[in-house]
Simulated assay, not measured.
Amino acid sequence: MEARVGAGFLKALERLDGDVGDALEPRLRDMIRLRVSHLNGCHHSIRLHSESLAKSGARPDLISALARPARQIRPGLVTDGESAALRLAEVLTDAPRALEQEAREQAGAWFNGTQVGAIVEVVALTNAWNRVMRGMD
């Protein structure tokens, strides 16, 4: 059976999507969205965010590296701050709760409270989109 999500719900997600993560650089927002989409196995979103990063000038090796855990990304491909943001995104998406404090503290070394909150926003909304898209496949 094909799932049909209400148009109002999709419009609400779209409106929210335009309002989250403004405290972050667009490239980092897209990197987080792509990493989270890989964790969730959402092929539609993986393609969408890979294309967005490519259009913004991201190198192909960076785009492909985001399929791996942040701690396994080749040194120099991402900044230490980007790595911390990606690690927090991973922990918020798919890791035991015990790791959240450590990941928040690591991200807090590179980002202010508003920016860490923006990372949380981007992760939450990307997770919502991934689940909607996978649920409708």
Rank of each mutant, 00 (worst) to 15 (best):
R35D: 15
L53P: 11
H44I: 11
S50K: 05
R33C: 07
D22C: 09
S56L: 12
L39N: 01
I32R: 06
G76Q: 03
R59C: 08
H43M: 10
E25W: 05
I32P: 00
R68Y: 12
V20D: 10
D61R: 13
C42N: 12
D19R: 13
V78F: 05
D19V: 05
H49A: 01
G41C: 04
L62A: 10
E25V: 04
R27D: 02
L34F: 14
H43R: 14
L39A: 06
T79P: 11
S45A: 12
G18R: 15
S64V: 07
E25A: 06
C42S: 09
G76S: 01
I32Y: 03
P26G: 08
S64N: 04
R47C: 05
D17Q: 15
L62T: 09
R71L: 05
R27V: 04
E14W: 03
A70G: 00
R68I: 02
R59H: 14
D22Q: 15
S52V: 04
P75A: 15
L16Y: 06
G21L: 05
D17G: 08
D30P: 06
S56Q: 12
G18M: 14
V36P: 03
L34H: 07
H49P: 00
I32C: 05
A58R: 03
L39I: 11
T79A: 15
H38W: 04
C42V: 09
K55I: 04
P75S: 15
R15K: 08
N40A: 13
P60V: 14
S50P: 01
R71K: 14
H38P: 00
Q72W: 08
L13A: 14
K55V: 13
M31T: 05
I46V: 13
E25K: 01
R15C: 06
V36N: 02
I32A: 02
L77W: 09
G57P: 08
C42Q: 07
P26Y: 07
P26C: 10
D61H: 08
G21S: 03
I73W: 01
S64L: 07
R29T: 01
R68C: 08
H49Q: 00
V78H: 02
V20W: 13
D61Y: 07
I46M: 04
L62D: 07
D22Y: 13
P60R: 11
R27P: 01
L28F: 05
L16K: 08
I63P: 02
L16Q: 12
Q72P: 08
D30Q: 14
V20T: 11
G76K: 00
S37F: 07
A58I: 02
H38Y: 00
L53W: 06
H43G: 10
C42D: 09
G76F: 05
C42I: 02
R74E: 15
L13S: 14
E51R: 09
R35A: 15
R59T: 12
E51D: 14
A70Y: 00
G57Y: 09
E25P: 00
G21K: 04
R29D: 06
